[in-house]
Each structure stands twice: as C-alpha cells, then as structure tokens.
Design a protein around this nucleic acid. Structure first.
Lengths: 109, 109
DNA sequence: ATCTACGTGTAGGCAGTCTACATATGCGAC
DNA sequence: GTCGCATATGTAGACTGCCTACACGTAGAT
C-alpha cells in the first residue's frame, strides 16, 4: 500500500490513535502498524511533521518525559482536536461511500 | 467535501468511469458529479492534467471528434488501464478497510 | 448583445508525503 | 568492547498532485 494513498487521512488516524490514551510519536507508529496488520508503515519523516502540524493547529498538546533513559514527547488530544476527529470521521464516511460507489468496490471490513 | 480528500483516488475513479464506455473530459466531470450525488465537483484544472497523466502512463487512449460543432477529446481504457483499474480497486478495498478500522468508522454505503 | 452551458487547456502556488540523513540511549550477542 | 538492533526524535530537499485563476472557443436561449 502506502505511496500517497493515505494523503489527507493520516492526520485523522493520528487523532484517532491518541483519542483514548496519550501517546508518543514512535508509539503512534507502532499502533498504526499493528492495527493495520502491518499494512501501514509511516516513516518518521512523515509522522513528526504531521504531529507538529496538528499541534500547531491546536488539535494536540505535547509534553516531554523521560522513560527508560530516553526522551519522549507525549501527545494528547485537545478539545478542538476531539471536534476535528469527529469531523474527519464524518468526512471519511462520506468520502469512502462516494469513492467506493464510483470505483464499484463494496467495503471490505 | 473536496479539498485534497481525493488525493490519489481521482485517477482510479476516472478509470472506473471510462471503463464501460469511452467518454470525454467534460462528460467525466458530469458523471462524477452525478454518481456522487453532487459531492464531487472536479475542477478542470484538476481533471485535464489527470487525463494527460493517465494517457502518458498508457492507461488511457484519446481521440478527437467534433460533436455539435464542438471539439471533443474522447478517452478510452487500454489493456494496461484495465489492469491498473483492477489494482486501484484492490488497493482501495484494503485502504478503506484499514482507515475505517483505525478511524473507528464503519462504512456508510 | 449577453448569458449560460458546453468543451479543452495552461500557469503558478501550495501542502503533504517521500527518501535520506543526523543524533542519541539501552540492551543483547559475539 | 563493539556491533547491531530496537527505541526515540527530528530536519532537509525533492516530488507530485490538487487547487485557483486564467485563457480560448462554440452553441443556443433570452
């Protein structure tokens, strides 16, 4: 998969991952990898700029911590981030319906 | 909708539209608009470069015609275009499953 | 005459993804 | 003891595809 297929959907997925519990960048990568059964392998050069972008927009809030001698920047969802996530979910529902219909592909999951 | 949400999926949808019958650019716009219940409104500055790109890749073949005094460039799917469409459909099935699962959104249609 | 629908196309900008690189710690294997 | 791997964060520069805005032209209705 990959390429640019995720273009525009990565932000929403990041917000979804940190919705339940705050998490750091590397951990977000792992969750995405696992929850997609290995299909998603977001490179750090994509993830970290995305996280900073989301924080700049006010959707995420970050804080530093040291765990096991390693610096960690943990991100958590803000109020407007929660609203943004809901908007992304609505948008995805509409988009996936439209694209699937035109492509003639009925949803897999 | 819109924005960049279609990023990467427009090509596949174009191929899908001309799968059954050859069509010209403007007509493709209309079909996309109708089949999406008005959700899709692909601007010409997006569509025409996409068509040329797809032709350059060998997925489409075009021919000029004059209908009602107006020049028309009609596009039809090639063999490799058909294969590409099938690949895009597979990819979409996988992608939509993954994104939907992570986003926590079950398909609408 | 003017407006709208039809029809094709280019130029320039913007944004998000990619590859590749840079830096640093902890831990197990050799 | 050092080598490689997993952990962890980050930047630089290129690429690509979508967007807005513009340009050109015909047909038909008001």
């Amino acid at each position: 998969m990959q390429a640019d297929a995720l273009r525009g959907h990565l932000d929403g997925m990041i917000l979804a991952v940190v919705e339940d519990a705050p998490l750091h960048g590397y951990g977000i990568c792992e969750v995405l990898h696992q929850q997609s059964d290995g299909a998603l392998d977001v490179p750090t050069g994509t993830l970290y700029p995305a996280l900073r972008r989301l924080e700049r927009f006010g959707y995420l809030r970050s804080s530093w911590a040291v765990v096991g001698g390693r610096r960690r920047r943990t991100y958590e969802l803000t109020g407007s981030g929660r609203a943004e996530l809901a908007a992304r979910q609505r948008e995805w529902r509409e988009l996936s319906g439209v694209v699937g219909r035109i492509l003639g592909v009925h949803p897999a999951s």
